[in-house]
Simulated scan of single mutants.
Amino acid sequence: MQHQRPSAMLTGALPIVLDAMGGDAAPDVTVRGALLAVKRAGISVRLVGQRQVIQPMLDQLPSSDRVALDLLDAPDVIRMDEEPIAAVRRPGNSIRVGITQLRDGAGAAFVSAGHSGAIVAAAVLELGRLPGVDRPALAIPFPTVDGRWVLVLDAGATVDPRPEWLVHYAWLAQAYLRVTQGIQHPRIGLISNGEEPGKGSRLVREVYARLQETPGLTFVGNIEPHQLPQGKVDIALCDGFTGNILLKTGEGAAWLVRETVQRAFRAHWYTALLGALVRPVLRQALQRLDYRAYGAVPLLGVDGLVFIAHGRSDADAIAQAVLRAYQAAHAGLLAALRTALSEQDSMPRSE
C-alpha cells in the first residue's frame, strides 16, 4: 500500500513526531529529551501520547520552552509484552497515531523508544514499503577502532528473510551512507562464520551468490563478527535474528568491559589513583560502546522516516534520537532512498 504525500511535505518546516509513551521511563524522559532537542537545534517536536499525563508536565514549563512543543492526544499505550500486529490495530495507540502523522504529511520523521515490533508493523501498515522492497530492515551502527561506524542490518525487523531481501538491504544501506556519511561506494560484507565463499548457512550462501552477480554494489565477501570493529567494511548484512543477537551481545560486552575496569579501579588505593588519572580517557573510549551515542536507528525500507530508540534511553539519548531524525529529514534521506531504488534496474525482485 503506497500513500501519496501532500506537496507541503517540506522537512525543514515540519515537526519531528515523538512517541511520548515509548520507553522504560516514559513519558518523563521523552518530554525532557524533546525539550533538550528543541534547545540544542531550534527544531519543533510534536509529542504523541496521553494528554491527561503529559499536559500537566508541559504546563510546568516556562512559556519559552513550550513554544516548539505541541501535543497530540493518543489515549492508548502499547506494552512491551504485547503481540505487535494485534497491538497496532487498536485505535488510538501512540505508535500508530504518530506514524499516521507521517502518512498524512504532518511530520518530517517519527521517533519512538517503544515496542520495536509494533513500530515495524505500524510503519508497514500506515506508510507502506518503498518500491522494490519486500521487508524493512533495522540498521544499527557498530563502532570501529578507528572512530568510524559499520552499518549492520537487519538488526531485528525480519528474523527469517528471503535471500533477495538482504540484497534489498544492501541498496538501502548504500543510499543511507551516501546521504548521511558521504560514502559513495561503501564496502559491503556478509556476516558469516568464515570468510570463505562456501561458509555459512544456506541463506548466507545464497545471498553471497546474489551479491556477486549484482552490479552497482561493492561486495567484498564474507566477514566474521569479530572483524566488524576492525572497519573492514562499511555495511554488514545479516538476517534479523543474527543482527539482534549481535547487537545484544555487543551491549553485554560493553557492560562487561565497563564493570571489569571499574571494579579493578576500586580494588586497591593505587588502582584508584590510576583510575582517577585515566578515567576521562577511558570514559571517552567507552562512550562509543554506549547505545546512547547514536540515539536511534533507522527503519529502512518503509515509505517514511522512522527511527527506533533504545527502550532504556534517558533524556539525552532521546534528544540524540530526535536530532538524528531531524538531520536525516533535512538531508532528504527519504528522497535519496526512493531514487536509489528506482535507478537499480538490476535489483532482484521476489517471485
Rank of each mutant, 00 (worst) to 15 (best):
E83C: 08
K232P: 00
L125M: 13
A236E: 00
S350T: 06
H268L: 10
W269K: 08
R279Y: 07
P348K: 04
M347N: 01
I318K: 07
G301Q: 08
G117H: 07
I95H: 00
E224G: 04
V133T: 06
R135K: 08
G182C: 06
T242S: 14
L130D: 02
A137Y: 07
D234I: 03
G301K: 05
A336V: 01
V111R: 00
V17R: 08
A319R: 05
I191D: 02
L211M: 11
V167Q: 06
V45Q: 04
G311Q: 06
F241E: 03
E259K: 10
P215T: 04
A122G: 13
P143M: 13
V67A: 15
G12K: 10
H3P: 02
R40S: 14
Y169M: 08
F219M: 01
I191H: 00
T242P: 05
D65E: 15
R279W: 07
S313F: 10
S342W: 00
S201M: 06
I223N: 00
D239F: 09
L333T: 04
L36W: 06
M57N: 05
A319T: 08
P141C: 14
L217T: 01
A26S: 14
A315C: 11
G98D: 03
Q52G: 01
A209K: 13
V257W: 11
T144D: 03
A264Q: 12
H330P: 03
L334H: 01
P91V: 10
L47Q: 09
D70Q: 11
P225I: 05
G311H: 05
L323K: 01
Q344K: 11
L14A: 02
Q327D: 15
P6T: 08
V53L: 13
E251V: 10
P141V: 14
D59S: 11
P163E: 05
I188W: 06
E259Q: 10
L172N: 12
W255E: 12
A329R: 05
Q262E: 15
R283K: 14
D239Q: 11
S64H: 12
R79E: 15
V302Q: 07
V145A: 14
L203M: 13
E213H: 13
N193D: 13
A13K: 12
A123Y: 06
W149F: 12
G231H: 04
Y326W: 15
E164H: 14
S63M: 09
Q320K: 09
D28Q: 15
A13I: 07
P6R: 04
F142P: 01
Q55P: 02
G33P: 08
E164Y: 08
I16S: 00
D104C: 06
V220T: 13
D134Y: 09
A37D: 05
A293C: 03
A109E: 09
L138K: 10
Q327H: 13
V124I: 15
R46E: 13
V220E: 11
R178G: 14
A8Y: 05
G250I: 04
A170H: 07
A319L: 13
L166R: 01
Y169E: 12
S63C: 01
W149R: 12
I95L: 10
D234F: 00
D160Y: 04
Y294C: 00
G42E: 14
D81N: 13
A137I: 07
A34E: 10
F241I: 03
R288P: 03
V297C: 03
P62D: 06
V297N: 02
V302G: 08
C238E: 02
S313V: 13
F219E: 03
V17I: 15
V257C: 07
M1P: 11
R279E: 10
L102H: 01
